[in-house]
Each structure stands twice: as C-alpha cells, then as structure tokens.
Design a protein around this nucleic acid. Structure first.
Lengths: 224, 224
DNA sequence: CCACCAACGGAACTTGATACCATAAATATG
DNA sequence: CATATTTATGGTATCAAGTTCCGTTGGTGG
C-alpha cells in the first residue's frame, strides 16, 4: 500500500475540511497542512481552490465535443441528446464525488455560480453545433438552435438534480423519457416563419384527424 | 453644475480605465485614484469590483418577481413571458451601459461567468413560479416547468444578444416573435405522455386548414 | 458653542493566486 | 559507479481583492 498521489491527498484533505468547517471557512493553507504538502504544490495541481471540486470538466467537455463531431445521428437534436448522455453517465459513475460536490454547490454561492458557468459551456457547444448543422439559415433557425440547446441542457439538469437529491431510482430511464419529451417539443414542424406571423404546431395522436379539424380551426383562428 | 455622486464618479472612472487597459489590468486603487476618492469608499458603494459593471441586478430581479406575482395572465407561461420583457426593456433603456458591459462580458471570462450566473437566477425564479402555478403535479409537470423557464430565458437572451451586437433594428418586435415561438412549442398539448406516446403539435398559418390535412395525416402516421 | 450623526479616508489584516528561486529525489548518461 | 540533468517539491516575496477597525471631517440640531 503505497501512498496515494499528492493530487489525491490534496483532494481528500480539501473535502474533509470542507465537510468539517465549510468551504469558505477553509483556507488553502489548512488544506496543504493536512495533506502534508506545500502551498505551491496545491496550485500546481489545481488552478484554484474551486478546481479541487471541479477537476475534469474540461476533459468531459472535450469528450462531449468529440462525440458530437463523430455522431452518426441524422438530426442535430438527436446527436446532442446522445452527447449529453455522456455527461450524465460520467456523474453516475463517480457517484460519491458527485454527491459531495452537490452538497457544496447547493450551499456555497460561489460554487453554484461556477457550476452554472460550466453548464453554460455545454449549452454553448450544443447551440453552435445545432446552428451549424442546420446551416446558418438566418434568424429563426438560429433562435431554434438556441431553444433546442437550452431544452436539452435543462432536461439533463433536471434529471441529474433529481438523482443527486436521491429522488430518482432510475435516472437513465428518466433521462430517456426527458429526451423524448424534448424531441417531442421540436419534432413535428419546421421553424415558424419570421415572415407572416405563421405559427405552426403539429401533433400525433391516436384520435382520428378529421374529428380534430374543427378544434384545430378554432385554435388557428383565435386571436392572441 | 454640482459634482456627480461618488457612486457615479467611481463607475465612470472604472469604465474609462476598463476601456483603456482592460478589466483585469485595472486595480481598484487605480479606479479610486482617478475618481479622487478613497479605497474604502469604493467598497462602500460596490460590494466588489465586478459590481461596478452589474449594479442593479438585484433590483431588477425583485421587479421581475413582483411583476410575476401580480400578473393577471392566465397561463404561467404567459406571465413569465410578460415578466421577462421587463428585463429586455431595462437593457434597452440604458443602452449605453448595456453595450459597454457587453463588450466586457464578451472579453473577460470572469465577467461572462458572472453574467451567466445572474441569468440563471431569473431562470430559477421562472421555473419555481411555473412549477408552483402548475400545482406540483408530480414529475413530468416539473420537467415541463424546467423546459418552459429555459426556453423563455434562451429566447430572451437570443434577442438581447442580437441587439447588443447591433444585429437587431427592432428588438421588441423580435422579442414578441421569439415569445410566440416559445409559446408555440408548449401551446398545443399537455405533457406528452408517460402514457400512450401521443405527441401533439398545433399550428397557426395563413393557409387553409383543409389543404393541410393530408400532409398532417402523413406526419401523424409516419413512424418516429 | 457643543453634541451628535453620517460620510469619507487610512492603515492593517486575511486570503487567493502568481512569480521566482532553491533544494531534494529520480533518472539518464558517461 | 559517479556525475549531470531533469522533475517534483518547498519557501519566500509579492500582488490584488475584500474586510475590519478606527480616526477625521463636516454638517445639523440643541
């Protein structure tokens, strides 16, 4: 049983102290002291105090980007849903760290903000991917890309948070359901036109279409 | 012509220095020196260096919350669309500051993150409002609230960013269009089932409905 | 004229983060 | 095996943001 790496010792000391005294009440000096290492060493392994808690976000983001670029799915939205699953799986794998981190981000505003910022990077990646895939077809398509990216990320976060709070016995199943719901939002129609104020909504139902036409007509002709 | 308030003098000095040397290259000491005030005074008026750039986010958030709670709109989504318009209008009013701030948040990562974090607070407010208004009807409704809040915020940001980049001659019109598009996403149906896989999409168009029925039928009967 | 209150300034301190240099351990090289 | 060279680490000094505490000024009401 050889000693764990300095990096791991620092992380362990940090989390232990965060549990005992809280994040803001813990100084970097105290962390390095408990780990038996020098202050300089800490900043060699972690760019900042926050980085101890968010170690490999960059790596994961790169992974997701790769998955996007090599995806064989036909629609941009399907490719993104596919890619964001990687994020969820990553959290599920390191469940212990994820839950400790969640306890901290729920409590400490600075950490919450950081978490949000990193989520925004995924959203941006998705938005750019979708917009590019849809081929820069002007303004409404661009808004549509933005909405899709936001919806995918929101749905993912929803499932992830439920799992982190222990409210989800089967997060993967919830994830698939959520992605289906997102797909349903965007599935049936092209972007409504910037042109004539046309708004399109499509639907798929077991009922007979003819029976629904009158109701549809009311919707179409209603003001607002 | 009496002197402007210390608060304004500090803000002016800060923005001038940020333009000249950049945000990170400017120290608080330099700001107070140019403003002819003491360092202590700076932190009396602004909680942090970043606060000079984001002065009244709290006030605006409170304003939006009030508008939500006193809204007479029937659906939660309509109330939120209504409330988020306040944010856009606020930016349009102080166009000068908004554009200078945008130039900074586009450049400085720390400021971008802060901006994103404050946007997330609006999104959270909206999500909680919608979820509560929809009455805590279990899991799918909760996801739906999350998606709605994310869509409204994304659409707002999309329009705002276009305007900030000078790509939008009529931001209010674009805003209304965007909100219509968001409403269209969620308008026609209750949450698609957990139940029978029914997916509904509705539409509003200038074309005659009868002419579209065959096309609709194809959509409905197509597998996935 | 004096007591009081609010705004401002200054100095010291804490802490995260960086830069630079020194030293010990590991490894390569003759 | 001895010596050079890289690599990991520690220490010190320094900077800048942010906080605390206290002193000073200036106006206001008695």
């Amino acid at each position: 049983m050889s000693k764990p790496s300095p990096r791991d010792r620092l992380a362990e000391a940090a989390f232990a102290l965060f549990d005992e005294r809280g994040y803001e009440q813990t100084t970097v000096d105290e962390i390095t002291e408990r780990a038996g290492l020098g202050r300089t060493t800490f900043f060699r392994y972690y760019r900042s105090k926050e980085d101890v808690i968010f170690p490999d976000h960059d790596r994961l983001l790169a992974l997701v980007r790769d998955r996007l670029l090599t995806s064989g799915r036909h629609t941009a939205l399907a490719a993104v849903c596919d890619a964001v699953r990687l994020v969820l799986l990553h959290y599920l794998e390191e469940a212990g760290v994820a839950r400790r981190r969640y306890a901290l981000t729920s409590t400490v505003p600075a950490l919450r903000d950081r978490e949000i910022a990193s989520v925004a990077r995924y959203q941006r990646l998705f938005r750019e991917f979708i917009a590019e895939r849809m081929g820069e077809r002007g303004e409404p398509a661009s808004l549509r890309a933005e909405l899709m990216a936001a919806a995918v990320v929101a749905a993912h976060n929803h499932v992830l948070r439920r799992w982190l709070r222990g409210q989800s016995p089967d997060p993967l199943r919830e994830f698939e359901d959520a992605m289906r719901q997102v797909a349903a939002l965007f599935a049936a129609h092209a972007a409504p036109g910037a042109g004539d104020g046309t708004t399109i909504v499509a639907f798929r139902t077991g009922q007979d279409l003819d029976a629904l036409v009158p109701a549809l007509r009311r919707v179409i002709e209603a003001p607002e």
